[in-house]
Nucleic acid binder design. Structure first.
Length: 443
DNA sequence: TCTGGGGTCCTAGGACCC
DNA sequence: TCTGGGGTCCTAGGACCC
């Protein structure tokens, strides 16, 4: 059996932990660049506010209804997520971190619990709430897909927030009551297609032959879905592992890419500004890569023009630079990325977004050596430099030290100032749990 | 003026290799 | 009259998830 533990309205719940006066009031959290609504309290949902809605379109309604608005604060949400996972790790031998606000627990080998699964689920929920202040819902079933379904239905049970679907007698009615587009793995496109074919519920989907799903729902992916809906586990399992800092992380070897992309506050066309932005993104992605003990031999530079312009043609342009030897050295990666940027950029074009993608990842300790390129003599010192940089930035705040290529945006008094390409973030809460100067004040 | 970011898997065509 | 099969790399896009 698997349990899916899903945090309710996660980003809003994180903000409310440190602003308890917002309980019962409508609250929303915006995406980066204050672009869209990406988390809504129940009260905000009741006002008809939709997920992903552009902020500038609903701003008048938000003001009129006195909805509390937050810019996204990933330093806070990431840390709260870590705390939730830490608590969950006490309730199962293995867990999988599925996203920032969800984790699967593997209950196999705990069959003695079977009669008490609902009670166990309630204990999980209560403990997470007590230790972190974050409300959750728990769905328990023999496959991940059915656990997802159980979780969805658990949210409606305001009483307990826990639902167990252990037998087909239990999950079949649940499938029958669920619109097909709400089944995990059926998105908007497939959902519409299935509805047009008269397949309206999860039960109708499960009743089709296995080969039909393989044919119409993305091949192997659809076939797996069929098995999952029939109680036969088919989804992979990517267990979390303890890292050197005693934190649970998704198993590093399974990660295939690391990206850092941002929309700009306003369009940018200057080569120098784009270069500083790209160098900043490389620094962040490389730091993340080092934290996971990986190195990359491919770096992709991404430039995006206006996605919403009424012109045809692609708005995302990418250029791949391959490195002779895989590395996680920020300087080497920056050099490669700036080379890629130079090739990719079209002078005079205004870009709205940019980013980098690191791929061809492998454990840094086992990185393939170059056939012709001897390891640089200063390599050990460079690695030490990166490790020191990471430590300083971790302790004293992001980007305390970095490459000059990433820009040194300071005002006349030497105080840090946002770079030209920075996005909007007008309503950001403090980093209550990760910044010494931003700790929560009580009383 | 204004529309996110980070992932996964799969497919396909063109250019190139032998 | 007639033109293979097995690859890689790059770019782009479609589907899904949160």
């Amino acid at each position: 059996m698997y349990a899916l533990v899903d945090c309710n309205n996660f980003y809003v719940s994180c903000e409310r932990v440190f602003a308890p006066q917002l309980a019962g009031r409508p609250v929303v959290v915006l995406s980066n660049n204050d672009g869209c609504l990406i988390s809504r309290s129940d009260e905000a949902k009741a006002l008809g506010l939709k997920m992903g809605e552009p902020y500038h379109l609903v701003r008048p309604l938000l003001e009129q209804q006195q909805v509390r608005v937050f810019s996204s604060n990933y330093a806070l949400y990431g840390d709260m997520s870590r705390r939730v996972v830490q608590v969950l790790s006490n309730f199962a031998a293995e867990l999988e971190i599925y996203s920032i606000d969800e984790a699967f627990l593997d209950f196999s080998g705990m069959s003695l619990l079977a009669p008490d699964l609902p009670a166990y689920g309630i204990r999980v929920k209560k403990t997470v709430l007590k230790h972190t202040g974050i409300p959750t819902c728990v769905g328990i079933a023999p496959t991940k897909t059915l656990a997802k379904l159980a979780n969805r239905l658990a949210r409606r049970q305001a009483t307990t927030g826990v639902l167990v679907l252990s037998t087909s007698e239990q999950w079949e009615p649940a499938l029958a009551a669920t619109p097909v587009a709400d089944i995990w793995g059926v998105g908007r496109r497939y959902g519409r297609k299935l509805q047009e074919m008269g397949i309206l519920t999860g039960a109708a989907l499960a009743a089709l032959p296995e080969h039909w799903l393989r044919r119409h729902l993305g091949g192997v992916v659809g076939q797996q879905l069929w098995h999952e809906l029939h109680g036969q586990p088919c989804q992979g399992w990517n267990p979390a592992e303890w890292d050197e800092d005693d934190q649970l992380q998704p198993a590093a070897s399974r990660r295939h890419s690391i990206t850092c992309t941002r929309s700009f506050g306003r369009p940018q066309h200057e080569a120098a500004v784009l270069a500083e932005a790209i160098a900043t993104f490389v620094a962040r992605a490389a730091e993340k890569m080092r934290r996971q003990g990986l190195s990359a031999h491919l770096i992709t530079v991404i430039l995006g023009t206006d996605r919403y312009a009424p012109t045809a043609g692609p708005t995302t342009h990418t250029g791949v630079v391959s490195l002779p030897v895989s590395t996680n050295d920020t300087a080497a990666l920056t050099q490669a990325a700036l080379h890629g940027l130079h090739r990719l950029r079209r002078p005079g074009t205004a870009y709205h977004r940019a980013g980098v993608l690191l791929s061809g990842l492998e454990p840094a300790a086992q990185a393939q050596l170059g056939l012709f390129a001897a390891p640089a003599a200063d390599q050990p010192r460079r690695q030490q430099l990166m490790a020191t940089m990471d430590k300083l930035n971790a302790r004293f705040g992001r980007q305390l030290v970095g490459l000059a290529a990433a820009g040194v945006a300071k005002d006349a008094n030497g105080q840090p100032k946002a770079p030209a390409w920075a996005g909007r973030s007008a309503y950001c809460s403090p980093r209550y749990t990760t910044g010494w100067h931003e700790l929560w004040r009580v009383g």
